[in-house]
């Protein structure tokens, strides 16, 4: 991996503190993605999804009905 990993400048205590801070920032970022995605999912009305799917199925069935290859 190269010499950069052989370090004597990072004490175990500093490593612990840096790991904690790094994890905090990372979780903050991931938390934001999760929160936003979840939030928008909540706002989305499942009844409308169901209706949209039904519409698509009906349209497909109609097309199949009218198809000359039938």
């Amino acid at each position: 991996m190269g010499v950069a990993m052989d370090r004597n400048d990072v004490t175990p205590e500093l490593r612990r503190r840096m790991n904690r801070a790094g994890l905090f920032f990372f979780v903050l970022a991931l938390g934001l993605v999760g929160y936003l995605t979840h939030n928008f999912t909540k706002e989305y009305d499942p009844a409308v999804v169901k209706e949209a799917k039904l519409q698509k199925q009906r349209a497909a069935a109609e097309r199949a009905e009218k198809s000359p290859n039938k």
């Binding site: 934001l32 928008f40 409308v48 949209a52």
Partner: peptide, 26 residues
Amino acid sequence: PVLAAAVTLLLLDRYLGTHFYDPANG
């Protein structure tokens, strides 16, 4: 993270048939 969430929803709309950004479907 905001952009990551936004484009993820875009991907779902395009390829998995969700309608986050589709006014015709809520």
